[in-house]
Nucleic acid binder design. Sequence first.
DNA 1: AGACTTAATTGGTATTACCAATAGGTGAGA
DNA 2: TCTCACCTATTGGTAATACCAATTAAGTCT
Lengths: 246, 246
Amino acid sequence: MKQKISDKVAERLQEMLKNQTWTAGDKLPPERDLAKQLGVSRPSLREALQKLVCAGLLTTRHGGGTFVQEKNQVNFIDPLLNMFQEQTEAKFDVLEVRHALEGTAAYYAALRHTEVDRQRIQHCFDYMIEMHGSPNPLDEAKADAQFHLAISEAAYNPVLQHIMKNLFSLLENSITHNLDKLYTLPKVFEPLSHQHERMMNKVLERDADGARRAAQEHLVFVGESLQQIERAESRKLHAVRSLPTL
Amino acid sequence: MKQKISDKVAERLQEMLKNQTWTAGDKLPPERDLAKQLGVSRPSLREALQKLVCAGLLTTRHGGGTFVQEKNQVNFIDPLLNMFQEQTEAKFDVLEVRHALEGTAAYYAALRHTEVDRQRIQHCFDYMIEMHGSPNPLDEAKADAQFHLAISEAAYNPVLQHIMKNLFSLLENSITHNLDKLYTLPKVFEPLSHQHERMMNKVLERDADGARRAAQEHLVFVGESLQQIERAESRKLHAVRSLPTL
DNA sequence: AGACTTAATTGGTATTACCAATAGGTGAGA
DNA sequence: TCTCACCTATTGGTAATACCAATTAAGTCT
C-alpha cells in the first residue's frame, strides 16, 4: 500500500522530534517555511501537523506558532476510551482495571520511590485533606487523582504511568459527578482518608506487599460505596419511572 | 479558549457517528458534498476527517470514498506508547503491567466466560500448539497473543480489553524479536505450554483465584526467561565491545 | 455474455489569497 | 527614563480553485 504524503511528512516530523531536532517547549519554524523545507504544500504539511497535535505531541497557538508539547502535560485521551464513558458500567470497568494496576503501582512504588517522590506523595496527601469540604467537589476529586498518580509515578514504570493518567483523565471528564457524590457522603470520608493514609504509609515504609494490600482494600471499599450509590439511584429512577403506569 | 472550526467539525462528525447516522462499513458522502453540507471549506473538513482517521474511527480509500471503520479491527496504537518501544526496559515495564492486568483478566474470565468464549479459548490454545515450530516464529508469537487476548475478552471488561489489545500490538511491532527468541529456546516451550494449559483449565473450571495465580506464575516465568536472555545478550555485547581494547 | 475501455466519481495535493490572533517594536505620555 | 498604548509584521486558520490519481461503474466491442 502506498502511503499518503501527509503521512510520510508526519513520520518525518515524528523522527525529528525523537532525534531531538526540537525539544519540549521549542517553537517550530513557521508553516510556510517548514512546508518549503520539506518540499510539500502547506495544506499537506498542515494535515501532518494536525495528526501530531491530535496525538498530543505538538500544540499550536493562532498567531503565535507551533510548539513541542511538554511530555508531562499529556492532554491526550485515547479516543476509544472516550467512547466508553457513556456506558454506565464504565466506572466499574475502570475500577476493576484500577484494582489491578494500583496494587502493583503501590507495590513497585514501595520498592522504588526516592526522596523526591516521598515528599510529593506527602504533599499530595496533605493537599487532599485540605481540599476536603471544598465548595467545588471537583477540586477534591482532582486532588484524590493527583494523590494516586503521585504513587504510580513513584513506581517508575512509564507504561503503567501512562495508562493510569489516561484512566484518570477519562474519569475526570464525565464520571466525576459520581465520584463527588462519593465524597459528600458523610460516612465515607473518614474511612477513605484512613485508607489513603495507610496506603501512603505502607509505600513510604517500603512495605511492598502491605502497600499492594492497602491499595486493593481501598478500591474494594470504593467499589462497594459506588454500588450503594448506584442502587440508591436506580431505586429513585424506578420510583419515578413507575409513576406513569399508575 | 475558542475552538478551531476543524475541531468543531470533528466533534460534529463524532456526534453523528455516535448517533448512528452512519454505521460500521457505511460510506460517507463525498468530501465536496459533506463540506457544503456542514458549511465549511473542503480543507477544513479534511483536517477534521484526518483526525478521525488518525483516531481509528474512519478509513479512506483514494478514489473510493470515506468509510466508517469496523470497531473490531482497531489498528490504532496510542502514539505515546509508540515512543516507549525504543527503550530496552520497555518490555519489562509492559511485563509488569501485564502481570497486573492478566491476573484480574483471568480472574474475571473464570467468573464470566460463556460457552462461546470457552470454545474460542480452546481453539486459540490448540492453534498455539499447532503453530509451535512454525518456520516463521512471528506466527507463534501472534498465536500466543491471540490466546491471551481471548482470555481477557472473556472477562467482559471493555476498558481492560482495550488496554490489553494496545499492549499486545505494541509488543508485536518491535519487541517481537525478543519473544521469538524466547520461543526458540528448547527448555522453554515445555513449561510455557504447560502454564498456558493450566491457566486455561483454571479459567474454564471457573476457579477464579486459581486462574489469577496461574496467570501470575506464567508471567513471572516469562519475566525470568527474558532476563536470562537479556543477560546472555549483554554478555555477548560486552565480549564484542571489549575486543578492541585488547 | 464476458472482458475490455472509457468516463464520471472521489480522495489527494498544490497554489493562492485573505482573515485573525499574537508578538514585538515604536512612539507618546507620565 | 520608564510605562503603556498602539501599530505593524509575523504566523496560524480558513477559504476558493484547479488539477492529479485512484477507483468505480457504465458503456462498448468482441
